[in-house]
Design a protein around this nucleic acid. Sequence first.
DNA 1: CATGAATGAGTGTTCATTCAT
DNA 2: TATGAATGAACACTCATTCAT
Lengths: 234, 234, 234, 234
Amino acid sequence: MMIHSHLDSHEEGRGIATKRDEAKYDAILQAAIEVMAESGYHHAQISRIARAAGVADGTVYLYFKNKEDILVSLLRRSIGHIVALGQARLGKLTNAEEKLREIVSLYFEQLGANPKLAMVTQVHLRQVDANIRREIGSIMRPFYDALDDIVQSGIAEGVIRPTVNRRIARRMIFGTMDETVSAWVLTGSKYRLTDLTDDVVDVLLHGLSRGTGYGSTGADVQDAAQNAERSVEA
Amino acid sequence: MMIHSHLDSHEEGRGIATKRDEAKYDAILQAAIEVMAESGYHHAQISRIARAAGVADGTVYLYFKNKEDILVSLLRRSIGHIVALGQARLGKLTNAEEKLREIVSLYFEQLGANPKLAMVTQVHLRQVDANIRREIGSIMRPFYDALDDIVQSGIAEGVIRPTVNRRIARRMIFGTMDETVSAWVLTGSKYRLTDLTDDVVDVLLHGLSRGTGYGSTGADVQDAAQNAERSVEA
Amino acid sequence: MMIHSHLDSHEEGRGIATKRDEAKYDAILQAAIEVMAESGYHHAQISRIARAAGVADGTVYLYFKNKEDILVSLLRRSIGHIVALGQARLGKLTNAEEKLREIVSLYFEQLGANPKLAMVTQVHLRQVDANIRREIGSIMRPFYDALDDIVQSGIAEGVIRPTVNRRIARRMIFGTMDETVSAWVLTGSKYRLTDLTDDVVDVLLHGLSRGTGYGSTGADVQDAAQNAERSVEA
Amino acid sequence: MMIHSHLDSHEEGRGIATKRDEAKYDAILQAAIEVMAESGYHHAQISRIARAAGVADGTVYLYFKNKEDILVSLLRRSIGHIVALGQARLGKLTNAEEKLREIVSLYFEQLGANPKLAMVTQVHLRQVDANIRREIGSIMRPFYDALDDIVQSGIAEGVIRPTVNRRIARRMIFGTMDETVSAWVLTGSKYRLTDLTDDVVDVLLHGLSRGTGYGSTGADVQDAAQNAERSVEA
DNA sequence: CATGAATGAGTGTTCATTCAT
DNA sequence: TATGAATGAACACTCATTCAT
């Protein structure tokens, strides 16, 4: 998997404090997650974030250009982290199926381990203005590229059907993961997100249709009755 | 298809004007679409919407509880319309595959025919507060239910694999459609959304994996080379 | 005297409230004079002005574009008033000397009758940004034009020396009046500004120099000893 | 000319750094002129002044009490310089007319040679708070005193009319010079300020009125037509 | 039903000043 | 002396909502 790496240096975007207290930077970001997860982007006053971080209001502006910059930096850091992990883990894998499972697992694992961060990325991040959405898009790009690479290499390996519309394939992968995480967040993060990995990968790989003779996975041994029992999720 | 209908009476939610000038209600809703599509939710002042609708500011509050209610009513109306159409069209179909294709087609057709509405539902609707998102969920319910029905009946018919996680299946369907429409909107609505129906249904039904001997669709005759050419979309 | 009249319609500049409560407009302006005279421009919070005017903060913005607009409107109104009075009074006079005396008298009378307004125009008005100073210049123009007209007509009548640099003559007239009013304001408005009219006009007309045989005025009978006694002013 | 000298020791006012690096003190003052002339008082951040002076922000406070103190020190230094020059030059003159011409010439020469300084003293200096204006008054005192001395000695010599109101005479002199410099600054410092000396002195000495038989100066040979041509100034 | 003038709560951001090093 | 990171007070302005007419 070729994960593009220009976002690894996820600090570049700051452009304000080149060499200030890194712990303070982290504290503000963490405080922002806490406050935003609780109150949403628009109701998360800078003064509350500052207080939660243990700094003065003005200090926030030594580390971030403005309030939106905090949000963008949050996403940049978390996506950057996921992408970096992906580079490390997926590099060792050769099979597209394994790569897909790994990236889904990674995504669920990362967001599943931090419900507040997930709340911010899945819900509050979307409350911002159009111009910020553009920047968000550019931050997500490396992740999208990683998904595209998986599809592309899978086709090359003969593991993925060459006839799928690749862009749509990518959107299916991301859309399914995104919808899954959002549902998990909005229902209170009550179950383990990673538990869904196999089911998600199964449906992504094999679709809904009962074809004839396609390769069955371990998941297939579950029958419809069992399926109906899974009710942890709302 | 069992589309739950309690939201069809989409006027119930108003609770303000039981039977006022219906044309004025529509005018405000239409004005809201225009203004929000252009400026986003937060920059769409009530006064601008009122002016665009040809009514006074105060009049808006005779028809809607508040600004968010306009947004919610927009969604209620458009989803209600789609659900109603779905009831009509899917009722005649017996095959789950056909139903899936029909609902995807219908969704793309409705939003594809109204880019401004799509802009509002895909982008601006998400800028609202968390508490409103709950209401949005309840509005979407009938549509989700329709998708669930398709999955459920598909399994009963033996068309859909009984082993798929049904909730995840539904999220895959909706997530893929949603992501597809969002991408279309955010790149300027430059191509025909309905042109993607077949490719979307193909990947939903058969997944990514090149299994052995699953039933191929007409789409399958496209080869990788052709796939690479599809560049209408950004 | 040809006083250019485009500023008579001193309400045009508002451009916000075309037909609102005129009494409210006046109340805000008067409140602004009170508050600014006491605290200066920068310390005159909109909320204090609003409270003093008996309106809500937001109402101020129904009548004025922003805080600077209040200041500019103040000047526009007071200078406009002086210019309008000048048109009425100077129109009846034919002699440039009389016109000069009249306009000095008028200026001192108007500002002398309203020390708080004078405090604002002489002190606080100058605390604003460069861009506003430009607008202030355009508001003062008609007054400068009136002074120019007096000089010009005086020369035509043979009353004013044709060799004086007209622009400098105007600046002397205005500079002397301005300096006189400022001194009066800054020392607490303790004496009657209009009492200085004759002495000011005398020095403007005849200068400092003891020429030989120039026409003496009544003021000339005051001798140096008396002059030294005038100590009301700081 | 009796120029009171207690402000010559313009360092007294500092009260902070008694004998620090004089070059640094100058550098900060010069940087302040540059930055303020460009951006105005309120937009001239201490940090920009410090950077322009090549020192740290905090260092500024080792030399100046606060931001206003920089402005006041600027005026103190420049007026002090003018007053000192005046003492040197006017001491040699015996005639009040010559003294007046010399001090006008000196004032125009000093400010005319430094448009940025003039911009600060004529425009930005006036943007300060009312309490500071009092201190400005005390700084200007020696200059006012010099003007008063000229008037006083002129009367004693029989050169200046004993009947002029002396305080008003002084205000006319200063007001005319001030207005002239301000106009020059605000129109872009495009002509030579010193070129106006003769015209200014002429009108100060002889006023506007065409009396009979007052002593004419060389300037008088200019006729009205020529006067009209002087259009260097805006 | 309709109006639209009036309301007033709510907050991101700047920057002069301080002080620990 | 000098630094510059940290501080935190201060406030104009917007706009959803109301209600007297």
